[in-house]
Simulated scan of single mutants.
Amino acid sequence: MTRLLALIYALACYALFGCAFLLLIAFQLGIPALPVSKSLSIGPSVAINIALITAFGLTHSIMARDGFKRVWTRIISPTVERATYVLQSSVFLIAIVWFWQPLPTVVWTTDGVIALFIGGLFWAGVAIVLLSTFLLGHLEFVGIAAPLNKLRGVAEPQDVFRTPMLYSVVRHPLQLGLLLVFFALPVMTAGHLLFAGLMTIYMMIGLHFEERALVRRFGETYRTYQSHVPMLIPRLWPTRRRA
């Protein structure tokens, strides 16, 4: 794969990622984004939905492991490894939205000021997700930086531990934003609650392994960070820092 083709491939993966994120927002807001016939009973609907999240979670987790990457980059260029990871995440997320079987029973509904407040939390979650990707390098996150650097003949930057802005409040602000996107809905149906619950379970399992990987990568620096900064829920009061 030439350097230019690698960059074009990464940009195409990025475009699909943008589409997938917009579809997720439409799905959460109940906007009919994809005209799919859905008339199954509760049992098969729940089974299909669980299978969709499981397929997403397994693929997403396996491809993120260092051992898989070592084998995978013998098959594809390391330059497009991250872009390919973004591609599979986007494809599986689109598949979830496309094939998701709705469970329309209303679990809770709000109106007036409360609905506006919850809706505000939802859009705050969207903003936190997007901002989090930029704080540590948006182009690196979406897989464009590596092929772009390769095309320009620029060396890959060193892996430096940083905690800018939101990362000084919680260790994983992107996942905090996703929790708001999952749960901050003025009208919550059983289907959306199932989606939120399954995605949260997967996310917590993924964070467990990610934390272990970060400790291996940054050692005592990350352990100190863990002791001072909560993982997902911001502290309402400051803690005394050790020297």
Rank of each mutant, 00 (worst) to 15 (best):
V126R: 15
I144P: 11
E81D: 15
E140C: 03
A83F: 05
V113F: 01
S89C: 09
W108P: 09
G119P: 01
L121Y: 12
V91M: 08
L103E: 00
A95S: 15
W108Q: 07
V91W: 01
R82N: 03
W123V: 14
F134N: 04
A115S: 15
G137T: 11
E81A: 09
L139S: 15
T84C: 12
G143M: 06
L130P: 02
E140F: 12
A127V: 13
A115L: 02
V129M: 11
W98S: 12
I114R: 05
A127G: 15
F92V: 00
V107L: 15
H138S: 04
L121P: 08
I128D: 05
L87A: 02
I96N: 02
T109K: 10
W100L: 03
V97P: 05
V126M: 11
R82Q: 08
L103G: 02
G137H: 06
W108N: 11
L136C: 08
L135K: 08
Q101N: 06
I94H: 12
A83T: 14
L93K: 08
G143N: 12
F122Q: 10
V126F: 11
T110W: 15
F99H: 12
S132A: 15
S89G: 13
P102A: 09
G125I: 06
F99S: 06
A83Y: 13
A95L: 13
T110S: 14
S89T: 08
L116N: 10
L139Q: 07
L136D: 02
L121R: 07
F99I: 00
A95R: 02
T109H: 10
L136F: 06
Y85V: 06
P102R: 00
I118N: 11
W123T: 14
A83C: 04
G137L: 10
F99C: 06
V113K: 06
I96Y: 04
Q101L: 03
T133Q: 07
L139H: 08
I96A: 00
S89R: 04
V106E: 13
I94F: 14
G112T: 14
I94D: 10
F141R: 12
L130G: 14
I94E: 05
V142T: 15
G137I: 07
D111R: 11
S89Y: 14
V86F: 03
V129G: 00
P104S: 07
L135N: 00
F122Y: 13
E140L: 13
F134G: 01
A95Y: 03
V142W: 05
S89Q: 15
V106N: 03
F141L: 05
L87V: 03
T105H: 05
V126E: 04
A124Q: 06
I96R: 00
A127L: 14
A83R: 08
S89L: 03
V126Q: 12
V106C: 01
G137F: 11
A127Y: 07
G120F: 01
W98T: 15
F141S: 05
I118C: 03
L93Y: 11
V97A: 12
S132M: 02
E140H: 13
I118L: 13
A115F: 04
E81T: 09
V142N: 15
H138G: 01
I96C: 10
W123G: 01
L130H: 09
S89V: 09
F141Q: 15
A95N: 00
